[in-house]
Design a binder for these strands. Structure first.
Lengths: 197, 197
DNA sequence: GCTATTACAATACAAATGTATTGCAAAAAT
DNA sequence: ATTTTTGCAATACATTTGTATTGTAATAGC
């Protein structure tokens, strides 16, 4: 029998191929054959690791979240003793499609969004992801309020919602060029100015 | 030869079928055969009115904008002498997926968004639509500032961007249930409270 | 009345797709 | 040393898809 390999690694490699294809041409470009080619394996190998195409896509969606955290951590490690504002800005910068990788991620996210209209499992996973992200973001702002980093904000929940969903709203239009990256960052920075001391 | 019919009407009927299919199952459900069936015509008829599937989708995207305006007008007609705030709220209420039709429209919009990653024409049309909508919204808020309807806002452009993209950001998560409709409306109303006298 | 045109309808066709199956060689287990 | 297991690879198959083509009957134009 062949050398035993790391299944999770193989699956991740395939997921990365999925992201590249979506990022370049959208979800329609994700056929098993295309994924296999992009991943540098045979279609039989793809089928070895994923029972169905849906399995593969669902895995890819879940894995995407996993791989963002190290990137965020890495960005934070570059900031010496960051304030909440700086950490918040770093996180937002990762979410907005400002560089190649974030652009890919934003594209993939929207593609899965659209895909979720015909797929309950995908939609559940997205919902769960959104809630977790929003809650973390809200809690972070709440902590900042308690430690006096915010200006006098009456309603921290409202402020948290405004910031979070403002960023969500900027992603799509920035992706398609309805808004420039610079403008998007300016809007966010102005908002942060209004929130933080 | 058969009785001459209204081409545009036929095309619109087909576009409506496209929306229904997307709304129910996402863009993957939009095959020519499915559209024909949903529209109550033969596939030959669909091909008679649209040379290619892409033509059909592009038309559907364009037509969607056209058909929103009468709905907005109708909502405004129900308001006796509306303030800018009331008009703004009416428009936002139409954009958020609060009722069946708005939900369908939001779904279709995201579907086209995702579809645009593999289609330059679709993306251009979306971009154009976003820009027009944003500009109208920004101008409306600017007018309100000049006529004294707003609180003292330092930067009306920033305020306009915040309101517009906050709403954009609420659509997706509301659609998938990551956020409740009630919460979304509350966030918007609070934002309007902060902007308008 | 005759001809041209139109609105469909039906069908063909090539290509693409996901699922399923079989095969093989090398490593792991005994 | 033998058997079992594993990671692929290759292929088959049924289904679906968009594009293309042909046909027909009824209306419009002259």
């Amino acid at each position: 029998m062949p050398k035993v390999v790391d299944h999770e690694e193989r699956r991740r490699n395939i997921a990365e191929a999925v992201y590249r294809l979506i990022g370049a041409n959208g979800m329609d470009a994700v056929s098993l054959r295309d994924v296999a080619q992009e991943a540098g394996v045979s279609m039989g190998a793809v089928q070895h690791y994923f029972k169905t195409k849906d399995d593969m896509l669902l895995f890819a969606l879940g894995y995407m979240r996993e791989r963002v955290l190290p990137r965020l951590q890495s960005a934070l490690d570059k900031l010496p003793d960051p304030t909440t504002r700086e950490r918040t800005r770093a996180a937002i910068t990762l979410m907005l499609p400002l560089d190649k990788q974030s652009t890919q991620e934003a594209t993939v996210n929207i593609a899965f969004f659209a895909n979720s209209f015909g797929n309950k499992e995908t939609q559940a996973k997205l919902r769960e992801g959104y809630r977790a992200l929003y809650e973390a973001s809200r809690q972070s702002l709440k902590d900042a309020a308690e430690s006096g980093e915010l200006r006098s904000i009456e309603d921290v929940d409202q402020a948290a919602a405004e910031l979070f969903y403002l960023v969500q709203g900027l992603i799509g239009p920035t992706l398609i060029g309805a808004m420039s990256k610079k403008e998007a960052v300016t809007v966010v920075d102005n908002k942060l100015d209004a929130l933080f001391r």
